[in-house]
Write a protein that binds this DNA or RNA. Structure first.
Lengths: 334, 334
DNA sequence: TAGAATATTTATATCGTTACGATTTTTCGC
DNA sequence: GCGAAAAATCGTAACGATATAAATATTCTA
């Protein structure tokens, strides 16, 4: 049999569609016994509201669109953490009417494109995206269109939007402090381009630590931008085959740390000994390295969870200015 | 201004809603110049069809629901490959009316639950799930409900359903052959429980190789079930601290391979030398190990892509019996 | 118990889209 | 240039849900 609708229940109970509709949502204009009768019938007939009908009539949209940066080849750098993020997102939607739809941001694509697409095709009641930039046109766009959105990552804009972020300033500071306290005299930061807010924040944290410890850190010289590097192993091997290489490295992820470690070993160095390492991570993978290296762990499950709860609040009329959350990372010294 | 609808375009062009509707989908009952006029207007007004209205009227549902096994803690084993899969899925939906929604399968949860939920709440026009079992009740259920679905992984059931799979029999065979040809006299297979079809297939491949090479392989003794192992490193260390340990290992993923390698090194062994390794992988991570280990690479992007194309065909009336695809893995000897 | 006030239920219109049948306009034969 | 056939366009109804206003049933007051 086809799907049960309000009409089915109405015929089944001998009531009108309107009454059935109100009974099911506990409207206070329906007599208690009627409500019970309707609910029982709904149960028996396996009724579930048709989202298209509901959405069309009310304008509500229980779809939340997460825009994920995707990869085409076997590139794995961005991979780790994604499932945790999705897990956190979907977990928060559990037992709500909301659900998650995913739109890809393809490599090299203008990040505004999928956002525009989601809005124009009315795909979602709210939008979540990451890799925010200090000045992010997606924020401007969505703010203007009055579409609820939460970002994973902060901006430096005057617009007061909802966001969830990891404390990258703190991460940079603690990572650098860790290396300096081990005696490093010259460290390098493996980083994304500084157009991304998180990369910028992390740099600032490192910079502060460098000043506190009196060890110079130069933005131009000591940041290694990862977008230019295809093969970490080869890059690090070459870097360390010459003199004057850093004696401490902050890796952007546990994956890049694997490349770094192999490159160091190729060059005859001893990771963790003559070159100190620390990585920003989302898993316990670094505890499995030989030797294990310390990591600043970000909890992407938690981030996803808060993102989802925030977008629901926003869709239901919440105030963006009150929906801001910054999470600290945890240091694991394996 | 609110969203442009067919009505907006109709008023703008002075035509009727019906004509506009047909003009936009290139119906052959509309004069060419009219079509152009309508399309131009749609462009200018930024028209995008309202999916709720469309779905309500046609009964079509352009949502495809992928059910993903999720994780709660920092467990990373299942993580790698997920983004590639999603990337492949969404890429195939690009420039179609379809889009991807994600439902979680929580750890330890009955896998039928999210499937039932998706069907009962009418969340999707089609469903995709993985980790198929030899006898899978989700297949029975969806077949009975007549909801289009494609599985990532085969079953051993009489039901003729659409699937995409990696050739795990071939993977097992080639992985084991690789180890045997290097002279291994006793190998172990790190595997999921054999309730999963893919694990079963892989075992069968290994078994065949063992018979061809005349090296015994015992299902009970030589398969190491990973679900029981919390810490690979510790487990392998202990295994190799005694005698009589395997001289060859087939790792289920590059992630478990990292744990295996560290455990071997802890135990004073030399991975790749006194213990040969090979891993089933979805990335080039194993090329970054010290030493690099060979890997049988599965292309999850491609799998996702075919899954998506198949589910579209099914939703549009295709025959499940004709939608079967098995992809070979590629051996990388780094 | 009549009349008013309240409680409960129902009919109608609408969201955006498309299928169907009806209507208008154009083309064509002679 | 007239009527018929063909082409193009239009009006209405329907998908499933809810908001609003209208209608009916019940309770209460005096």
């Amino acid at each position: 049999m086809a799907h049960a609708t309000l009409k089915t229940i109405a015929e089944y109970t001998g009531l009108s569609v309107t009454t059935v509709s109100r009974a099911l949502k506990d409207g206070d204009d329906v007599k208690a016994p009627t409500k019970e009768k309707v609910k029982k019938a709904a149960q028996e007939l396996g009724y579930a509201p048709n989202l298209s009908g509901l959405s069309l009539r009310t304008g509500l949209n229980y779809s939340v669109c997460a825009i994920l940066p995707t990869v085409k080849d076997g590139d794995v750098t961005g991979d780790i953490g994604t499932l945790q993020l999705i897990s956190g997102l979907t977990a928060a939607f559990d037992n709500t009417a909301y659900h998650l739809t995913v739109l890809p941001l393809k490599e090299g694509e203008d990040p505004l494109i999928p956002v525009k697409f989601a809005v124009e095709s009315n795909l979602a009641g709210g939008i979540i995206f990451n890799l925010t930039r200090t000045n992010d046109e997606r924020v401007t766009y969505l703010n203007e269109k009055k579409v609820p959105f939460v970002t994973f990552g902060q901006t430096e804009m005057s617009v007061d939007h909802a966001y969830v972020d990891v404390d990258n300033y703190d991460i940079g500071y603690r990572a650098a402090s860790h290396l300096f306290s081990l005696g490093c005299k010259r460290i390098a930061l493996l980083s994304s381009q500084l157009i991304y807010t998180y990369a910028w924040h992390k740099y600032y944290g490192v910079k502060r630590a460098s000043m506190e410890y009196g060890v110079p850190f130069d933005k131009e010289r000591d940041i290694i931008i990862d977008s230019a590097i295809k093969d970490y192993r080869k890059f690090i091997r070459q870097l360390y085959s010459g003199d004057n290489a850093p004696d401490g490295l902050i890796c952007g992820s546990e994956i890049s740390a694997i490349g770094v470690m192999s490159g160091l070993q190729d060059a005859g160095r001893h990771p963790g000994e003559d070159v100190k390492l620390i990585c920003v991570e989302t898993s316990d993978l670094s505890s499995l390295f030989t030797p294990p290296i310390p990591g600043l762990r970000q909890d992407f499950y938690s981030v996803g969870n808060v993102l989802a709860r925030y977008i629901i609040k926003l869709i239901e009329g919440g105030n963006p200015a009150e929906l801001k959350y910054i999470e600290k990372a945890t240091l694991y010294e394996h």
